[in-house]
Amino acid sequence: MFRRLPDIAGDRVSFTIDGRPAEARSGDSVAAALLANGVAACRNTPVSGAARGPYCMMGVCFDCLVTIDGTGNRQGCQVRVAPGMAVETQDGKREAGR
C-alpha cells in the first residue's frame, strides 16, 4: 500500500482504527493515516455497498468518508489525525444523530 519514507520529520501520533491501536505522524490527514496503516478501503457506499477508499486527497471526491470521534461522514483527507482520535470505517448510510 503506502509506506513512510525514511528520514521523515514529525512526531508519532497514536489513534485507533475501528478500535484497534494505530500510529500516524503529526501532520497526517486521517485518510493518509489510514493508508499508512494499510487500510485502503474505509467505507462501503450507501448506494451499492461497494468498497471505497481515499481517491483525491484534496477534499473533492468524498470517497474517504469515515466516522471520526463519533461523527459520521467526515472527509478523512480534510481532518488532521490527533492523539487518541477514534476513527471508524463506515458501512452504508450514515445514521442520523451520529
Binding site: M1, R3, R4, M57
Partner: peptide, 21 residues
Amino acid sequence: PGVLGAGAAQILLKTSGLVPS
C-alpha cells in the same frame, strides 16, 4: 480501493512522506 489519482499520491508524498509500496 487502491486506485487513486496521481495528484492524490503526490499530496500523500508532500504532506506525509508516504510513497506506494
